[in-house]
Amino acid sequence: MTDHAATVEEPDVRDGAHGHEHHDVMVRGYDGKLHPAHLQHFFATPQQQFEASKLGMWLFLVTEILLFGGMFVAYAIYRAWYPELFAESSTQLDTLMGALNTLVLLASSLTVAWAIRGAQTDNQKVLFWNLIMTVALAGTFMVVKYFEYTHKFDLGIFPGQHFVMPDGRTIGELGPLADIEPLVLQEEDMAALAQHAPPAAEHAVADGSDASEEHAGEAHGPGAHGLTNPRSGIFFSIYYVMTGIHGLHVLIGMVAISILAWQSKRGKYSSVYYTPVENVGLYWHVVDIIWIFLFPLMYLI
């Protein structure tokens, strides 16, 4: 609300702001330069405009965090229900690649920060090249992800019902898991009543382990991952959805930063006006932070 105090003191500055044309008077009060074309007519001052877009960006980032928050909740709940499943399945994730990607993203956070600094200090070179570096690092991240994904696909590690069990059947083909192991047995004496349910679980698991022994020699091919839990599909659904949405955000970030780089080449940003650089930078940090959470949750624990 600092702008408020300021504008109350200089009401004439505000009054000058109406209409489509920007009046020089208004601008000189700010930084002595002429006519910043970026000031939209409904804002009184560039300061107000800057603060408004920054607040808007923060709010947007809050929604991003909540979007991922929903997924983290699903993760937490399933983890609490099936701790062994998570322990077992996460061994299939390549910690080395994950760690590499963590470093890459951290580095890219540094480069955007540097780019913003470049804009603030009117150093066009620093601004431009750091943006380019950021895009390159983001690209590296995506390439590593590509290799991770394709490796999993080779092993038949697909999300949900398409997950290939060691016996070559997909989870969708196992038949309803409902009969495997009721999620919540309200009471022990239920077991007697549940006698109808064929003990399919034992079959599936037993089949699986047999099969995995058979396949033990092969390093590749669908099902050669040794995971026998029929709920593995769910773990990998969560993995693919979370890393997939995160990857989508990286892609969007790459596009946005490329546009910024192109615009900065044309001299659009300087210490007077660099709001978009700052906002995209904020976005990029959030994408980074989300990965910082994803990495240990998925790969490490």
Binding site: P159, G160, Q161, P176, L177, G233, I234, S237, V241
Partner: peptide
């Protein structure tokens, strides 16, 4: 694609 998170037939809830 049948991710199964909400589908009891695939072990979801």
């Amino acid at each position: 694609i049948g991710i199964g998170i909400f589908d009891p037939a695939l072990g979801g809830d």
